[in-house]
Design a protein around this nucleic acid. Structure first.
Lengths: 230, 230
DNA sequence: CTATGTTTGCGTATGATTTACACATAATAT
DNA sequence: ATATTATGTGTAAATCATACGCAAACATAG
């Protein structure tokens, strides 16, 4: 049986970053093609010999030079049947987080320009990329309440107040500082360091760090986080 | 820029059914081709002009004649690069549930034979379909604890004991009958009917039915279920 | 027709978790 | 020095989860 099919497979990455108490998304500006000067998600067509995830990592490398600290498949968008007149495109979207210590994008090719945008202030986007981002943002909000992915958006060592702020910002909720601290500490996956931060004012705060090993052990036991705040 | 890509896009459906206190999966037996006599998931190649979900529904109709009561995208499997020598296949897997009142498969074409298998006793499967089923089963177990999808596996009207049994079976856990009832009723999405069931022995039980409208209202408010039993 | 077994339906006591809120501490700024 | 700011810890009340007891309504056996 012969299969006639004129579909191309692409991957897109929704890359979240966190800095200055704001959630950001990494976008690239097309320099050529029919999408010239349009902002779009990082992505491109999958090569025959690479896995989907390899394709995402390659595109990320080529277009932004950024290495992500978390990557998972999000959803496959394939209903936009007439996006390109030459063929149909289905795109497997990947959800990515980057550590805020490595935030500066440096594209390998000069075909594109990479830039962070606050999620509250996105430019007009190519294709259905705005809807893809909406799905990704919901996933981030959801996942934050039952898995410790917030740490993947912060530096290796961070202040509790930063973590708290991150949760407030992303979940768009007020959180009681004291209950939040108790809850997070009760999971036993973050540890105090002996380092204190020098802030402008106020009592100096201990830096904390995430214990990935401990987290993996918990996951093995089928443990989930369940962070829910009124 | 010319895109050279030799990838075909397929869809697969993991169809769950529940009967005789057991969870079942719908499989088809290939009658032709290199996979002759192998059991496999319902699925096939996507046509250029149909959405992914339409493709799933079409394949379900063609191969089994079954109409599902719940359908959502599960995951896209694309790492099995050398499954077919002619081209690479990526398959978008869909998670489906069928109401146990419509369990009899009746394939349109006589190319395949469709049959239910207990999840505890699956035959050898084609490709990576066993792994896909594993992913789907985990999703089912998970989803059952925070969304009322159990009702999509039962008849319109059902006994509480059936619902409880379904949860026990799928979650592979003992559940306290009384606490389960209280919890489920507290969500306010199922209603008593005036009908009583005639059982072999014991006190007659009221039949209950799911109120989909009420559920949709709850979802709008961002409500989640959270059924967790020790 | 009574006794026994079986399944349903409801209730309550206990413990665990969540939520709300108060105050001492250690730095900087004035 | 004193005010200001942010950190770190504690505790009481309310809510929720868990464990379990018991009566009601049927079938069946003797």
């Amino acid at each position: 049986m012969e299969i006639v099919q004129n579909i191309k497979v692409a991957v897109d990455a929704i890359v979240f970053g966190y800095s200055h108490n704001q959630l950001h998304i990494l976008l690239i500006k097309q320099k050529f093609g029919e999408l010239k000067n349009q902002w779009a998600l990082v992505g491109g067509f999958v090569k025959d010999s690479e896995t989907l995830q390899d394709a995402v990592n390659r595109e990320l490398q080529e277009e932004t030079g950024i290495e992500v600290s978390y990557l998972e498949q999000l959803y496959t968008f394939g209903d936009n049947i007439h996006r390109d007149p030459r063929f149909r495109v289905i795109t497997v979207a990947y959800f990515a987080l980057v550590n805020s210590t490595t935030l500066t994008p440096t594209p390998n090719t000069d075909a594109e320009e990479a830039q962070w945008f606050s999620i509250k202030n996105l430019p007009p986007l190519a294709f259905d990329h705005k809807e893809i981002i909406d799905v990704a943002y919901k996933r981030l909000q959801n996942k934050l309440t039952y898995q410790p992915i917030g740490f993947d958006l912060l530096p290796q060592e961070f202040l509790f107040s930063d973590l708290e702020n991150l949760y407030c910002t992303i979940l768009e909720k007020e959180i009681d500082r004291r209950n939040f601290r108790k809850k997070i500490l009760s999971f036993g996956v973050i540890e105090e360091t002996e380092i204190f931060s020098s802030k402008k004012s106020g009592r100096p705060a201990k830096l904390f760090k995430f214990n990935y090993q401990k987290y993996k052990d918990l996951i093995k036991e089928g443990f989930l986080f369940e962070i829910k705040f009124a």
